[in-house]
């Protein structure tokens, strides 16, 4: 059900400039999003990208907070943001 919602709203949301990117950990449980941007030192950002967090990649929140657990292509990943490094996402609205 969630997946269907995501695939329908994800790209539309990403294209809407009104929808500003938010820090990944602020997604609610079950909410999906698309990676918009990663902020931080270039080498750390590079590391996250090599891990598979490319702009536009779809993720789904499992446990919000910091550290958070999110789903990346079927698998779960735990991530902790800090003062310097953060992943920003376009949330797929659950508002609709």
């Amino acid at each position: 059900m969630r997946m269907i919602l995501t695939s329908r709203t994800g790209p539309a949301v990403a294209n809407t400039p009104v929808n500003a990117p938010i820090p990944l950990r602020r997604l609610t449980a079950g909410q999906s999003g698309q990676i918009a941007h990663i902020t931080g030192r270039a080498e750390h950002v590079h590391r996250l990208r090599e891990f598979g967090l490319h702009d536009g990649t779809e993720i789904e929140m499992f446990r919000p907070g910091n550290p958070c657990i999110f789903r990346l292509a079927g698998n779960k990943v735990c991530f902790r943001a800090d003062d310097l490094l953060d992943v920003l996402v376009f949330p797929a609205g659950l508002r609709c």
Partner: peptide, 11 residues
């Protein structure tokens, strides 16, 4: 600076 804390949760 610590490298990013990124941890895969295997099945």
């Amino acid at each position: 600076a610590s490298p990013p804390f990124l941890l895969e949760l295997p099945s």
